[in-house]
């Protein structure tokens, strides 16, 4: 999906310029095979970059890195798009820097829309994409259902990725990073929903007599306590969720292989049956 109106964000396919001012797609590159590396995050994870560069170096392939903005119409006055574009600039510069060290060619593009469709389109237009590597945050099924080439994901821990991102930040222009805004959002939600919850509790406990009179009337008034607790579960539920997230206590990012995947693998393996059909025999 092309989004030409967004500022600081490449309209569709934009080849990044390297330090000499040339496009990173070298003249002889067209004949090369590509590895398509896709992320939906502003900052592509460094383990993914490293893996792609290592494989590309070994196979003598070039890399086509794609940053996909999956929420181009996010209603925050274009703030997310601006941050995404800034993060993408940083990330692509880092990727190029890493690739240059291994003499691997990298081409960058910024896209908007659904990951699966973008991968499908690129695979058909580029022709020489051999396989796809996806970053965390992208569902494997989303890409495999559309991609005509094999898709791989790189497993890494969040803290490993975090530790690696700290040492290089060449294009930091003072913009807040997307990960930072996520933490801020939790703190903000914590205050908003905490305030709402406190207000609700204060309302109930400051007028216990009136509340108890109506809520214990029974009959159709039975819907009142249910409505109150559902409201509390929404407000207080969001508050507690943001509270633990703001403290940094969130679910593990290390994914164990799902039982579903394991079973799927079993069913995917074709069973080789012994061919018992009669054969023509030649007897001399």
């Amino acid at each position: 999906m092309v989004q030409p109106l967004l500022e600081n964000f490449p309209a569709n396919r934009t080849t990044q310029l390297d330090r000499e001012g040339n496009t990173s797609a070298a003249p002889g590159m067209k004949k090369k095979s590509f590895i398509l590396v896709v992320t939906r995050n502003g900052h592509m994870a460094e383990p993914v970059m490293d893996y792609a560069i290592t494989v590309a170096d070994r196979l003598k392939y070039a890399i086509l890195a794609v940053h996909t903005n999956t929420l181009p119409f996010f209603r925050d006055g274009g703030e997310r798009n601006r941050l995404f574009a800034a993060a993408m600039q940083e990330s692509s510069a880092l990727f190029r820097q890493k690739a240059e060290a291994r003499d691997v060619q990298v081409e960058h593009t910024g896209e908007t829309g659904k990951i699966g469709k973008i991968v499908k389109r690129l695979c058909h237009t580029e022709k020489r994409i051999e396989f796809v590597i996806i970053d965390q945050g992208i569902r494997m099924e989303e890409v495999t259902s559309m991609a005509p080439v094999p898709v791989f994901s790189v497993i890494y821990t969040r803290s490993k990725a975090g530790a690696m991102t700290t040492h290089s930040n060449p294009m930091n222009t003072g913009d807040s990073r997307m990960s930072t805004t996520s933490r801020k959002r939790h703190v903000k939600n914590c205050f908003v929903f905490g305030g709402l919850t406190a207000g609700l509790y204060a309302a109930v406990f400051s007028h216990p007599d009136i509340i108890m009179t109506y809520l214990t009337k029974g009959g159709f008034y039975a819907l009142l306590p249910v409505a109150v607790v559902l409201t509390v579960s929404y407000m207080h539920g969001n508050f507690t969720n943001s509270f633990w997230a703001a403290l940094g206590i969130e679910g593990s990012n290390v994914k164990a292989p799902k039982q579903a995947d394991v079973r799927q693998e079993k069913t995917d393996v074709p069973t080789v049956k012994k061919d018992t059909r009669p054969r023509a025999q030649v007897s001399a």
């Binding site: 109930v204 509340i211 214990t216 029974g218 008034y221 306590p225 607790v229 633990w244």
Partner: peptide, 22 residues
């Protein structure tokens, strides 16, 4: 609740702790 047995104050107090726990 149809029989008017729910004490919403107790429910809210328990929920106050249990949603953190859950």
């Amino acid at each position: 609740a149809y029989y008017g047995m729910v004490d919403i104050r107790l429910v809210l107090l328990i929920l106050g702790g249990s949603l953190f726990g859950v």
